[in-house]
Design a protein around this nucleic acid. Structure first.
Lengths: 140, 140
DNA sequence: ATAGCAGATAAGAATTATTCTTGACTGGGA
DNA sequence: TCCCAGTCAAGAATAATTCTTATCTGCTAT
């Protein structure tokens, strides 16, 4: 169960296990929909009426640093656009945010899992290779 | 050449081909680094000093709608977090934004292109299946 | 070539998401 | 129980994005 991992990670990292953090974690762990910060805030506030939105942000930041959870999508803050309209993929440096295009014929071979097929129709297979670019110390 | 596609698409869509739009498109088409809106704004402003930031946003919105370019990363505006720390992938509905997790053993088989290897070290293969969920009309 | 107009633009205000500041508070070790 | 580093709430501050309004301009029909 995820709650245990959370408790364990908190102790390891020397992070205080507060009521707020517990409820925030409970909320996001209970959902399979990756709710945004504000949604979590409103839900948890039902249980802790004095909760501040900033506490939700800070809690997520801490849990992300401790790898208890991960941010969905690396490119978060600023909008970026891609003039390349052919189907292609990206290599992304998780350190500096560098993005480079690459192509692969292998997407044809990808077998869509049955579970996914039952959720809807798949139009595109997008692959993101995440790593560290040379400038940041990858492949030295 | 991309500029032609842009000019063609503009005419097709009945969009006016203004000086500003041309320069904004030139700027992003010239770069392979998917610069953010503000970077494009500053560069183009060197050539058109009266350019407004909002024009860059509007131009990208129009070009995105006309499919002349695409937004890098679907989840743009709000931060979302994922309590699932095992390696996994996502099915994303491009209409309503629904996100569901799925697993696949096939990432092991993915051959990293040589070009990518030369850019840096790859740590993870993330796959995003994009389509339309049932609720939005997929798989009817 | 020119007029007229639908659509585009600049400028700055407004909105929305996120982070910072400050002073009060608390979990948990000594 | 005391202590204090770390945490919290509240609201201000920042940053990204969008909206409003008045002015202007590309383009089609003339």
């Amino acid at each position: 169960m995820r709650l245990e991992a959370f408790v364990r990670a908190s102790r390891n990292a020397g992070i205080k296990l507060t009521h707020q953090r517990l409820e925030i974690f409970r909320e996001i762990a209970a959902s399979s929909e990756h709710p945004d910060v504000d949604t979590v805030f409103r839900k948890v506030r039902g249980r802790i009426p004095t909760l501040a939105l900033d506490t939700v942000y800070r809690t997520f930041a801490v849990l992300e640093r401790e790898k208890v959870l991960a941010r969905v999508s690396l490119f978060s803050d600023k909008a970026r656009f891609d003039p390349n309209t052919e189907p292609h993929h990206h290599f992304v440096c998780t350190k500096c945010g560098l993005v480079r295009d690459f192509y692969s014929g292998q997407t044809e071979d990808f077998r869509i899992p049955e579970s996914v097929k039952s959720w809807g129709a798949v139009d595109a297979v997008y692959i993101e290779l995440r790593g560290i670019c040379r400038a940041c110390g990858g492949n030295l």
